[in-house]
Simulated assay, not measured.
Amino acid sequence: MHPSAEIHPTAIVAPGAAIGPGCRIGPFCIIGAEVTLGEGVVLDSHVSVDGIAEIGAGVRVSPFATIGHLPQDLKYKGQPTRVVVGAGTMVREHATIHRGSVGGHGVTTVGPDCLIMVNAHVGHDCTLDHHVILANNVMLGGHVAIADTVFVGGGAAIHQFVRIGRQVVVGGMSGVEADVIPFGAVMGNRARLTGLNLIGLKRRGFPRSQIGTLRAAYRSLFRTAGAFQGRVEATEAAFGEDPVVREILAFIRADSHRGLCRAGREMLEDEDAEAEA
């Protein structure tokens, strides 16, 4: 325990826990023996961190959140699985991040600079990359993989083993049962592609020419006739020199437990209107 750490007298810190410099542990927090808190971690109050848990520098955890507790997996029998929370992430009230399971890769990972809002749940063996935002009441089943700069709207549920590519936006209250291509936008119960995350692309400085290429590739993949494998090959032939299109194609071709989220016919006119705006 670093001498600069501040620990409220009502907090319980088990022997063996590693508490870094500048940490602040508030009232009624409970810290397990195999927990490591990086520099400047703040646990506001009533926070419980257990198991083999590594909390990165500058993480802040709000009251009644829990990190590293048992996975909701009936096959789990106390094996030494882990949870890692990256530097600068914020975990808000009542959020839960469970440790990994032996049926997965043994670790649940939340990357740096994420925001896990009130009452969100990150299930066992999930992987969240940089700058992921889960709004209030989002539910991630086990083994979900979410890439960089994804926003998941409030109340959305993501089925176990789903992959979500980078810079995706998931509409609030959606039920996502299949993989979502990078830069896509999905909505609905059950969720369907509604187009590209055009607002996110513009905000992050993608040039107009590349956005135009992405739109053309999206149309080639999801809005033309013929077998899907043929459309993938045609899209590669037409746009495969663009690195962002190659990223989407690689995502489509990767191994998947859940298949691919496709565009619903009822969404096509909405996608055109959004693009023109």
Rank of each mutant, 00 (worst) to 15 (best):
Glu6Leu: 05
Thr10Val: 02
Pro15Trp: 11
Ile19Asp: 08
Gly20Met: 08
Arg24Phe: 00
Phe28Ala: 01
Cys29Leu: 07
Ile30Cys: 10
Glu34His: 08
Asp44Lys: 02
Val47Thr: 03
Val49Phe: 02
Val49Gln: 00
Gly51Ala: 05
Gly51Val: 10
Ile52Thr: 07
Ile52Pro: 01
Val61His: 01
Thr66Asp: 00
His69Gln: 06
Leu70Thr: 02
Gln79Val: 11
Pro80Arg: 06
Thr81His: 03
Arg82Glu: 03
Gly88Trp: 08
Met90Cys: 14
Arg92His: 06
Glu93Leu: 03
Gly100Pro: 05
Ser101Cys: 10
Val102Lys: 10
Gly104Arg: 04
Gly104Leu: 07
Gly106His: 13
Val107Glu: 08
Gly111Asn: 13
Pro112Phe: 04
Pro112Trp: 03
Cys114Met: 07
Asn119Trp: 04
Ala120Arg: 10
His121Phe: 08
His131Met: 09
Leu134Tyr: 14
Asn137Phe: 15
Asn137Leu: 13
Val138Leu: 10
Leu140Arg: 13
Leu140Asn: 13
His143Thr: 10
Val144His: 07
Ile146Asn: 10
Ala147Ile: 04
Thr149Tyr: 11
His159Gln: 13
Val162Arg: 09
Val162His: 11
Arg166Lys: 11
Val169His: 09
Val170Gln: 01
Val170Phe: 03
Met173Thr: 05
Ser174Gln: 05
Glu177Gln: 08
Val180Glu: 08
Pro182Val: 04
Phe183Lys: 11
Ala185Cys: 08
Leu193Arg: 12
Thr194Arg: 10
Thr194His: 12
Gly195Asn: 06
Gly200Arg: 08
Gly200Ala: 10
Arg204Pro: 02
Arg204Gln: 10
Phe206Met: 12
Ile211Asp: 05
Leu214Glu: 10
Leu214Met: 14
Arg219His: 13
Arg219Gln: 09
Phe222Asn: 14
Thr224Asn: 07
Thr224Cys: 07
Ala225Met: 01
Gly226His: 02
Ala237Thr: 11
Asp242Pro: 06
Val245Pro: 06
Glu247Asn: 14
Ala250Pro: 00
Arg253Thr: 14
His257Glu: 03
Arg258Met: 06
Gly259Ser: 01
Ala263His: 04
Arg265Gly: 15
Leu268Met: 07
Glu269Tyr: 05
Glu271Thr: 07
